[in-house]
Design a protein around this nucleic acid. Structure first.
Lengths: 201, 201, 201, 201
DNA sequence: GATGAATGAGGCTTCATTCAT
DNA sequence: CATGAATGAAGCCTCATTCAT
């Protein structure tokens, strides 16, 4: 129709796949995970419906890819901090991790939104279960190490890690979901206060 | 014909409605919110599909009623504690509220599960938005009152309330979702530790 | 639309099922097995597309039912004659069986047409394989009995049974497929001549 | 660049066409006529999907070519025997024709299989109609000539020709379809017995 | 010529909702 | 009131065909 509409007739497979995944997140964030159809995604990506199936075996496979991407990004980010545990100042590490995680969540906000809102059908929640297990393990281990080092003091490091993780994730999601504007720095400050107090003796 | 043969041929409209709502929660918890059909619900409630529409205008209306019920129960529970703020020992109130809220969530676990996992389509999340706003307001006010009374010390009472709220809700949901068995008392203890530390000077 | 179109809003399940199967045979005979869609069948049966799925799990299940019906009718007819083998005049039995089988094929002509033309996908031919095995066994046994009784004389009764079976079935199908008019009695006469000669010493 | 590197980079158009037709028969025999896609055929022929359309206007045209090929081979084979009618010993001609026809069918078994099982949609059966008409005419004429010569004795030569034709074709197809191994000589012997008896006085 | 990414019509199936009984 | 057969809109997916490279 328009001359702008067809910049390139064929893109590299990687680009096309990414286009579709981005379009999917866009669509799902707008219309909801269930209400967003393959047709919507294809249209939003500027391709025909059939093209979708050249890059994903099915709608379900796309969801899998989206979940995997989110999970991988999150686990990797946490892992990067986990490696630094014990090698530098404990409280500085806590602070920089908090900021980094909050920024990651803000980056991935749409995807997180989609999956925390509608993405967990009974059959497909294993991938998130595995992710949460890994995250909790790393966070818990980190806290335990701090306890052993005499820096932190917590009765149940694993449980405390989980509680703090959800405190921040849940608050961020609620903020994004229901508030017009939101202040990233305010949230960071609040999170730091909570975590510092929670880990202090 | 015989009076024995018709034990409960007809139930009161209120009972039927409740039957259907309970059946719906049962079905949704098992098959997922989206996969659970009106036919499933009707069957699980022991009535014909058409009967469903005598008690609910549509599937969407049922979801609304379910959400409303959950929200109301939660808000009422919190409100009961909010009324007691300032009238008794601050820490005892915190502890009893924590236990009560955790028990409420365990009671309502199926309904919470359903809506936490799949229930928040963009159009229908206002109910939860309102709920969260109310809860946060009450919790925040309570904390602020404690701060004013010199018992608590928190930089941003509202934000801290939100953080603690999600810490507990998120952890409980994750526990219910992914763990076979879970220890209610352990969770209560962990929550108390977190909240005490978070509110303490 | 028309006042005639809706004779009865609900028919007995058996009737409705039969309606659909008859409509299917009609449609398949006209448009071909593959080209005939569920929509065509439903329309031809005077119901909505969705109604089809109240009576058959899938298009494939309908095909199964159609095949089974054809196979059952054929096997039963042959079995009825097989029971009479040896109890009455051999040649009279041959003649009456020939007529009866030809008449059955004429009755079921559309269904036979459909399945001999397009119905045998690699995966779904077992049902016909079983049918043919049964028929060949009965016909072969019958001929062998006649040979043992000294009435017939054939080198390989099973093979001869198969040959005669296909002679008649194939000819009848070709006649139906390609000829405007066809003379049932002529065909019966030709079949009798062939079979008599084939079985005679 | 090097002359060795391009063994058969380009084949003659005729060869390519034949490659595709052979690939098609291969694919159809394996997956079924309807399930075999143009993509399958192209892949099996070692060319790209688009190349298919350089040699055939459409999938339907390929089917036409395949049918035509089968029909032509069959008609030619029968015609070769028809020419010899009356010029040599009648029974020897019958026997050699029987063997030759059975061998032809075995050769072309895949193609025959494909079209016998799924290939006859209402619109496209004319080709086969014409073929059968021709065959029947030749066979019928041959038999009639034998009758006129006083060698054969048959009430309706045309009908008997058709019956014998289908006896052999149907039996062969069933054998190929449903039996692991099959004995060509046994089948030839049975066919000869049938035909000899059918044509004898 | 050859390629294969892109297209989109069309098929199968599900399920919320209606309505005659 | 209760029923459940019937409806049809809407979704997912396939594959013959096209066309820019």
């Amino acid at each position: 129709m328009s001359t702008v509409a067809q910049r390139k007739r064929t893109r590299s497979p990687e680009d096309r796949r990414r286009d579709l995944m981005e379009a999917a997140v866009r669509v799902f964030a707008t219309k909801g995970l269930h209400a967003g159809t393959v047709a919507d995604i294809a249209e939003s990506a500027g391709v025909a419906k059939g093209t979708f199936y050249l890059y994903f075996d099915s709608r379900e496979h796309l969801l899998g890819a989206l979940k995997q991407q989110l999970v991988t990004a999150t686990v990797e980010r946490v892992a990067r901090f986990y490696e630094r545990v014990g090698k530098e100042d404990w409280w500085a590490l806590v602070d920089s991790m908090l900021e980094s995680m909050i920024d990651l969540m803000i980056e991935q906000r749409d995807a997180i939104l989609v999956f925390t809102r509608e993405g967990l059908t009974p059959e497909t929640s294993e991938i998130f279960a595995g992710c949460d297990r890994q995250l909790n393990e790393m966070i818990g281990s980190g806290i335990r190490a701090g306890v052993d080092a005499g820096v932190f003091q917590v009765a149940d490091p694993a449980l405390m890690g989980t509680l703090l993780h959800h405190a921040i994730e849940g608050t961020l999601m609620e903020t994004i979901l229901y508030q017009e504007a939101f202040d990233r720095d305010e949230l960071v400050a609040g999170a730091k206060e909570l975590v510092h107090k929670a880990l202090s003796p």
